[in-house]
């Protein structure tokens, strides 16, 4: 991701928050326009929108509407975020046990672990023991493919 895009990202987040606030306010009004329903939401939404407008105004005034971020570029972290998302989304399909083992192994490989014994050993030992611990401790049924549920 280029420097320029990161700068647009900040602007997008701010307008995204304004968009969410406006949508939530309209949804609350649609459900019921009574004072009891809007007592907190309406003034709070107006305050949020006013602060965002002020922030944008100050940025325009200082000529820094798309100001740069000094943080690490987002793209360096994206593979980790993607892997985590895939893990969460696969829990019900692969089961908490297998999905966890696969996630751990792929993460280790992604971050440079090349000792295959460690990759396999740690993923299987930690993944299965955690899945077993939680499946035994929690009062809810967990999807498990390998371990007894």
């Amino acid at each position: 991701m280029s420097e320029c895009k990161r700068d647009y990202g900040d602007f997008i987040v701010l307008t995204g928050l304004a968009g969410f606030t406006l949508w939530y306010l309209l949804d609350a009004i649609r459900v019921s326009a009574t004072p009891q329903n809007l007592l907190l939401i309406l003034p709070l939404a107006i305050i949020v929108l006013a602060i965002i407008a002020l922030e944008l105004f100050l940025r325009i005034k200082h000529g820094s509407l798309f100001r740069s971020s000094e943080e690490e570029p987002l793209h360096k972290t994206l593979p980790v975020v993607g892997l985590f998302a895939a893990y969460v989304l696969s829990l019900e399909t692969l089961g908490f046990d297998i999905a966890t083992v696969v996630f751990l192994a792929l993460f280790l490989i992604l971050k440079g672990e090349r000792n295959w014994w460690l990759v396999g050993g740690y993923s299987v030992a930690f993944g299965l023991s955690v899945a077993l611990f939680f499946s035994q401790m929690l009062p809810y049924p967990m999807t498990l493919l390998l371990l007894p549920s």
Binding site: F84, F103, K111, E113, G127, V130, A131, F134, L138, Y140
Partner: peptide
């Protein structure tokens, strides 16, 4: 090492949130 710690903690967070 972080490459072991990060996925392990993420797993704990996911399992705990399911709980």
């Amino acid at each position: 090492p972080m490459r072991y710690l990060i996925p392990s903690v993420l797993v704990l967070a996911v399992m705990g949130s399911f709980g």
